[in-house]
Write a protein that binds this DNA or RNA. Structure first.
Length: 937
RNA sequence: GCUCGAGUGGUGGAAUUGGUAGACACGUUGGACUUAAAAUCCAAUGGCCAUUAGGCCGUGCGGGUUCAAGUCCCGCCUCGAGUACCA
């Protein structure tokens, strides 16, 4: 009987779909286990072999947990809003929904062929109105909430209004905009409704405000910080400029500390935690208020080194700082204006590119030192960022290298305030060895003591206090795009109003064109039916806008991360039309036990989703404030490109070994035309690239050998390998095993299709354990001691490997097991039956088939995992390595119950020992029973 | 620059608390079967020396600890990822 993998795999894929084998129940006496993959954006290119790596790993884990008796939730869906479909729509006029639908279909076909145990009845798509209804709903919840610092959680906006009505805002401890003016209860009551709404907006967790945003002219949209890489857009690499715009923002900064603290209780990779920690960028220090001489202005600064306050010799403001225009003296006005203008013109990228050039201008104004009252010149310089801290620094050149360089460059004095430190060459920034001098009441103090003292003194004179600062900024939530979630928002007198939750979803309107309007409005500005009728509670034609009953709707859409920030909870109850998820569902499933995905989402999706989860937790909607207990980043699979070498002058194409010292240009050849021995199918290549039809191919030993190089897997490098053709040629089980066999899950590794014959022939060997040409071989003979030892060794190792996510070593273990059982000519059902279960998480199709052939009528998927029995592994002897001076010379089999002296005697009596010693007497004999013998001397 | 991760045969990679380095595969070479090919099976395969027996060298580099180091410590080098004037 042949191993007909194509037939077997199709059969079981059909069976699983028909029987809904992997449908998870929300009511179960079994313990729950939630295995989640990062859902993909369905791109037009389809999947290549790198994409399913993480899915295969999580699928193995999910299947293993089912064998272990868990009720496993293992869903899949699509992050289906996104730029590529929209760009395609702009070019072709094709509605993005259609493109997306087509792409999803293709993804699904590809995924199905790999044999994943997804519960497809729970599929979600972020672009489906039934799904984004709940994204809009969460947005409304955020809008109706504020952050109460006193209880350190989000609360309903009504509780804030209640406080305002009673005592005004001076007692309120909230995370809010910086520019909120104080008011009393009386004043609050006197404010117009309009004014009250404006104030509340400054407190809401999602708010509309004019902020400086990253504007990408080429994409026609704003971008979040994490969507910008090296100063250009992550998608497309277009330049990004700073621009002031009115945009929706998310007050993620309210959660900065909790996002940081939460990292301690989740089992996520350290590098990922590190990058979130850096992104949040907590620093401890103090704010200090410097008064500007001869004016009413004060300049607050943030510093991490308040202990060096007596070393301040100048101040530097960001050129964008609002005080610049107010304090600049008439003499300096022209210079300052020119500098401000020049920096505004420079893009972020330019500013980042030359960090070395020191620029700045004196404003002519002086501040007053809070303690010495000495005048301090105020400069502006573009090394100070408007967006960090207060946009101003107290410059201590002796303690900070940038301040030092600036001072040197502009000949500003550099007072030394460190005991016994030479600062003639560079600044001194080592906190640990700092002893303060020339600093009045701080003299002789260490860094820590000085910080405490100076904060105490600052508070005494009312010019500063201890403060913790974060680098994290509020997240801009508006995109000038079509293919995203519409906001459930309309405008009355320019103020945003939420549409009531019962009227959701607000679905995307039809537009003629997907580009911004001629007046520069976002694509939704092209919609003709995009106004809100408050009475009818529905979207109506723009013609009806009267600003009395019918109002304009929001034209921006939500960013890519909106839909992915709660999808993991929606999977728990995805068809629920009345709630985002039922209480029963969330209380049963609780949180994700295992989350697998790429590390590229470290500071985007994985930070925003933690933020939303904490918000949902505050609102009592979810029981856990961290949604994923364990997270694993799968490594990237790189491609192994193939090259042919063309000599430019002659046009000859040389095999790799024939290049010699000729000058050749390497040209990518499609990897599908190269075999396992790096031989190129020359005819296929000529057919593929007709320009080489008549070229002379210089061969070696009658073959054309290509050069190989590891590169990113990409279409343009012709090294993309699709899983489809592999499934046809070798089968999904071979593919699954091979992807795991390549190496540790978290490591990046090159793909080389050639190696797949290894796992494929393993499966054939496995099959031959059960069947030969005459059919079934298995029978009820008693298993031998060796059989049982091999089996239980395998059970133990595979179990440990899966628990440790070391899937590559499991595959080796299977190979060893099958090699051993074949050599033992094992046909015992008592061995072969459990073996099928152990293999099944990795190679589920063949396992199902074997299971059925063994006489079972139910799917193997919930068969109990065999129990490891250590008694089969007990050995009574050990082959001891005998080493001399640490070098292993020979091995000697000795009983394991032999004691130290017995071992020593046996080893010393051995003739090879005497040979090695050549008459010498050993100085020392190390005997570690059960391990090793080492003879020294 | 800073933070994190990684360097082991021709290739992907194994190696539990320090205890037989190179498991398991790919590739290569030789052989069996076949009219032939594919498939399958058997054998060899880190380098150098040696007819054999065996020896020497070997886990990025240089030191150290130890009876014993891929593994621990110190100092470097290279590559990859993140971050980038963060006060």
């Amino acid at each position: 009987m042949q191993y007909n993998f194509n037939e077997i795999e199709a059969k079981w894929q059909k069976y699983w779909a028909k029987n809904q084998t992997f449908k998870a129940e929300n009511n179960s006496k079994k313990e729950k286990f939630y295995v989640l993959d990062m859902f993909p954006y369905p791109s037009g290119a389809g999947l290549h072999v790198g994409h399913p790596l993480g899915y295969i790993a999580s699928d193995i884990y999910a299947r293993y947990k089912r064998h272990k008796g868990f009720n496993v939730l293992h869903p899949m869906g699509y992050d289906s809003f996104g730029l590529p479909a929209e760009q395609y729509a702009i070019q072709t006029g094709q509605h993005p929904a259609i493109t997306t639908e087509t792409n999803i279909k293709r993804y699904r076909e590809q995924l199905d062929k790999i044999g994943f145990s997804f519960d497809w009845s729970r599929e979600v798509r972020t672009s489906d109105p039934k799904y984004y209804k709940w994204t809009q709903w969460i947005f409304i919840q955020l809008f109706n909430s504020w952050y109460n610092v006193d209880v350190d959680k989000a609360e309903d906006i009504q509780s804030l209004i209640a406080v305002f009505e009673k005592v005004g805002n001076t007692k309120v401890n909230a995370v809010c905009d910086d520019d909120v003016a104080a008011f009393s209860a009386k004043e609050w009551h006197a404010f117009s409704n309009q004014k009250q709404q404006e104030i509340l907006l400054k407190y809401r967790l999602t708010y509309l405000a004019e902020t400086e945003v990253n504007w990408c002219p080429a994409l026609g949209t704003v971008l979040a910080n994490d969507e910008i890489v090296n100063g250009v857009s992550e998608r497309g690499g277009h330049p990004v400029v700073r621009k002031k715009m009115t945009q929706w923002s998310m007050r993620i900064t309210a959660y900065a500390q909790r996002l940081l603290d939460g990292l301690d209780k989740i089992d996520w990779p350290q590098p990922l935690k590190d990058s979130q920690t850096n992104w949040i960028g907590r620093s401890e220090g103090a704010t200090v208020e410097f008064r500007v001489q001869n004016s009413e202005f004060g300049i607050p600064v943030f510093t991490t080194r308040p202990d060096t306050i007596f070393g301040v010799s100048f101040m530097t403001l960001a050129p964008e700082h609002q005080l610049v225009s107010k304090i600049t003296t008439p003499e300096q006005q022209t210079k300052v204006d020119a500098y401000v203008k020049a920096t505004a013109k420079r893009s972020e990228r330019d500013r980042m590119a030359d960090v070395k050039t020191i620029t700045g201008v004196f404003t002519g104004a002086y501040a007053e030192h809070p303690f010495t009252k000495e005048p301090i010149p105020i400069w502006i310089g573009d090394y100070v960022l408007a967006g960090y801290g207060t946009g101003a620094v107290m410059s201590v050149p002796c303690g900070d290298q940038r301040d030092y360089d600036f001072a040197k460059h502009f000949n500003i004095p550099i007072p030394n305030i460190f005991e016994g430190i030479d600062i003639s060459e560079e600044a001194f920034a080592d906190k640990a060895t700092t002893v303060i001098a020339n600093s009045d009441f701080l003299n002789g103090l260490s860094y820590k003591k000085a910080v405490n003292r100076v904060i105490f003194e600052l508070e005494k004179i009312g010019q500063g206090e201890g403060k913790i600062n974060y680098r994290l900024r509020d997240a801009v939530f508006s995109r000038q795009r079509y293919w995203g979630e519409p906001f459930p928002v309309y405008y009355v007198d320019g103020l945003p109003q939420m549409i009531e939750a019962q009227h959701l979803p607000i679905t995307l309107p039809e537009v003629e064109k997907y580009l911004p309007t001629e007046t520069g409005e976002p694509p939704l500005g092209n919609a003709t039916v995009w106004a809100w009728d408050r009475l009818k509670a529905r979207v109506v034609s723009n013609d009806l806008i009267d600003n009395g009953n019918v109002f304009p709707l929001e034209l921006n859409t939500m960013p890519g991360w909106a839909g992915s920030s709660q999808y993991f909870n929606r999977y728990m109850d995805p068809l629920n039309g009345d709630e985002i998820f039922s209480k029963e569902a969330i209380n049963y499933w609780q949180d994700v036990d295992l989350y697998i995905g790429g590390s590229e989402h470290a500071t985007g999706h994985l930070l925003y989703s933690r933020f939303w989860q904490k918000f949902m937790f505050d609102k009592g909607l979810v029981p856990k404030d961290e949604y994923a207990k364990k997270l694993i980043n799968q490594g990237m699979i790189t491609g192994t490109s193939a090259f042919v070498y063309r000599e430019e002058e002659t046009g000859n194409v040389y095999s790799k070994g024939k290049i010699g010292n000729k000058t050749v240009t390497p040209i990518h050849a499609d990897v599908s035309m190269v075999n396992a021995s790096d031989e190129l199918d020359v005819e296929a290549f000529k057919k593929w690239q007709p320009e080489y039809k008549d070229a002379k191919f210089v061969l070696e030993d009658g073959k054309y050998i290509v050069g190989r190089e590891v590169e990113k897997m990409s279409k343009s490098k012709y090294n993309v390998v699709s899983p489809d053709s592999i499934c046809v040629e070798y089968g999904a089980d071979s593919l699954r095993l091979y992807e795991m066999f390549l190496g540790p899950l978290e490591q990046s590794k090159p793909w080389n299709t050639a190696g797949i014959t290894g796992t494929h022939s393993f499966l054939k060997k496995l099959w031959r354990l059960y069947f030969d040409v005459n059919g079934a071989k298995f029978n009820d003979t008693e298993p031998t001691k060796e059989n049982l030892k091999t089996l239980h060794k395998t059970i133990k190792k595979v179990e440990e490997d899966i628990e440790n996510f070391s899937f590559n070593t499991s595959v080796s273990t299977f190979m060893i097991c099958v090699n051993e059982l074949s050599a033992q000519k094992c046909t015992s059902r008592a061995i072969l039956e459990p073996l099928a279960i152990v293999v099944s998480p990795y190679a589920p199709h063949i396992a199902e088939e074997l299971w059925e052939q063994l006489g079972h009528t139910e799917s193997i998927s919930t068969a109990p995992f065999p129990i490891f029995d250590a008694s089969y592994l007990v050995e009574d002897s050990k082959e001891y390595p005998i080493s001399f001076n640490g070098k292993m010379r020979f091995t000697l089999e000795l009983p394991l119950d032999l004691d130290r002296d017995g071992i020593e005697a046996a080893v010393m009596a051995h003739e090879k020992t005497q040979q090695q010693l050549e008459g010498r007497t050993p100085k020392k004999i190390i005997v570690v029973p059960g391990k090793i013998v080492n003879i020294v001397g």
